Amino acid sequence: MPDLGKGWTPGDLDEDWEASAEAKLETVEFDTELGIEISRDAMALARGEMTETAFHEKHHEAVFEEFGIDQRPTYETTVKAKTDDDGDALPGVPDVGGDAVPSRRGLLKTMGGLAAAGAATSMAGCLDQAVDTPASTADSDGGDVQLGMVIDTDKCIACLKCAEACKQENDTDRGSQWMHVFRYEETEYDDVSEGQMPRPCQHCSEPSCTYVCPTQSRFKREEDGIVLTDYDRCIGCKYCEVACPYGVNFLGKDEPTDKSPGFFGSDTDKNDRRVGGPPPAGVMGKCTFCVHRQDDSAQKGTTACEDDCPVDAIHFGDMNDADSQPRQYLRENRDQSRFKLLEEQGNEPNVVYLGNEPSKDATPTDGPFTYEDLGMETLADDGGDDQ
């Protein structure tokens, strides 16, 4: 992922970024060059530098050729499976029509034994300074619900309890940290300062990860703005991982950890989509804002990371509701500096940070607590799969 913090620009999608993207994609049986190019353009689309029409005119044919389907959310025309001259579905292409989307299992089956086996084995940013402004809208105290967070980095003590609670709640794989706490040092005029920044999925209003998903398994839920993965539709192409500037995606490996007794929440949402809990092997997973809680009347409006934070640094709720907990916290701390992570990217993240924003040159560091101290594996260097 690009360096976190102020000073990051779209120009940082350079050779180093491309090399990192290539390393992520080389472990799956899909077009690496297409994944890199479409991800780069998805970020340009989020920034408003490319229109949806141009985006699809440029990539539709290649996406269709690679996957036999193109259900990306910015593509309004119904796409049907490729057929031969007699109208029969071509080998290796799911036979779908209308708005139907093939299940992951069905799509892998049509890929053919060898390709399916290869796929299966390899699949193992600032809020406006006006204090009362919602995170994702310029004005409006009502309207649609947009769940989000305010995280006070000045209160955070980098104890990693939020990361531990997330793992216990969601039963994620070893090495998959849906909530990760970055600890860093800044040096200015020989003065060294330390900081910390918890990083869940940002649940963006303009999620570039959804733009690249050929089966629309990655989607933004209409009723509350949570960005989720439909585990039954995901084919593990990892394009969403490359298109996300925040490094929050992890490919499921079915490697349980002793930190959790197992997932006890409902793995399906109200629309019967399998979106909660740990992803199956070969399926992309990430922070869900504890979606199983949001669909449970007894736990609605809560997350595990917020519940277990000992210093009350995390505040979760509807960022469009002026009376919600995060909006109230912003008003109560109106004099504190604030930022959104990589806001220049244009994804419109719905996590607002209070405190000083780390610079691009911030140096990662350990302590005062380590993941090993709590019996957890550290995050992989690329912010994604364990290497």
Rank of each mutant, 00 (worst) to 15 (best):
T288C: 04
R72E: 04
Q168K: 13
L160Q: 07
C204D: 01
K253Y: 05
G35V: 00
E18K: 14
G252S: 07
Y231A: 14
A313Q: 08
R105Q: 10
A23Y: 01
G113Y: 10
T288F: 02
F263K: 11
P358H: 00
P280S: 08
E188W: 05
G355H: 05
G118F: 04
R47Q: 15
P278Q: 11
P326Q: 10
G35A: 03
T77Q: 14
T303V: 09
Y211M: 10
C201S: 14
E306T: 05
L374D: 02
S140L: 12
D224Q: 09
S20K: 13
T172V: 11
W178T: 10
P91V: 13
Q196C: 14
G247R: 06
K58L: 12
R218N: 01
G346P: 01
S359D: 15
D258W: 11
Y231K: 14
A158S: 14
K109V: 10
D295R: 13
V101C: 12
L90M: 15
F263Y: 15
E206V: 14
I69C: 10
L34N: 03
E61H: 05
C156L: 09
D144Y: 06
P261S: 15
G262W: 09
F289V: 01
R274Q: 12
L4C: 02
E377M: 12
T210K: 03
S103V: 07
E372C: 01
S208F: 00
E306Y: 04
R334D: 13
S208P: 01
E66V: 09
Y371E: 09
A116Y: 05
S260L: 08
D173Y: 08
K24V: 13
F67A: 00
P2M: 06
Q328F: 09
P278S: 13
F263R: 11
L342D: 00
T172Q: 13
Y329F: 15
I38Y: 01
A21Y: 00
I235S: 02
I235Y: 02
V93P: 04
P200Y: 00
R174H: 12
R233Q: 13
D3V: 08
G125T: 06
E255G: 03
